[in-house]
Amino acid sequence: MSRRFPIESRGRRKKLYEFGCVTGICCTCFLIRSFVIILSAFDKNADPDVMDHSLLNLIYYTLVEIVP
Rank of each mutant, 00 (worst) to 15 (best):
M1F: 02
S2C: 07
S2G: 10
R3C: 00
R3I: 03
R3P: 00
R3V: 02
R4W: 07
F5M: 01
F5I: 00
I7P: 06
I7Q: 11
E8Q: 08
R10W: 08
G11D: 14
G11F: 07
R12N: 00
R12C: 00
K14W: 09
K14Y: 12
K14L: 13
K15T: 04
Y17H: 14
Y17S: 15
E18L: 02
E18S: 02
E18P: 00
F19L: 06
F19C: 03
G20D: 07
C21N: 09
C21S: 12
V22H: 02
T23I: 04
G24N: 09
G24T: 04
G24Y: 01
I25A: 01
I25L: 03
C26P: 00
C27R: 08
L31D: 13
I32M: 15
I32P: 05
I32N: 13
R33T: 02
R33A: 06
F35Q: 12
I37Y: 09
L39T: 09
A41Y: 11
F42G: 11
F42R: 06
F42A: 08
F42N: 10
F42S: 06
K44I: 10
K44D: 13
N45K: 15
N45T: 10
A46P: 04
D47A: 05
D47Y: 06
D49R: 11
D49P: 01
D49Q: 12
D49E: 14
M51V: 11
M51E: 14
D52I: 08
D52C: 08
D52M: 12
H53C: 09
H53Y: 10
L55Q: 13
L56R: 04
L56T: 04
L56P: 02
L58K: 01
L58H: 02
I59H: 14
Y61R: 13
Y61E: 11
V64N: 07
V64Q: 03
E65G: 01
E65V: 05
V67D: 03
V67Y: 11
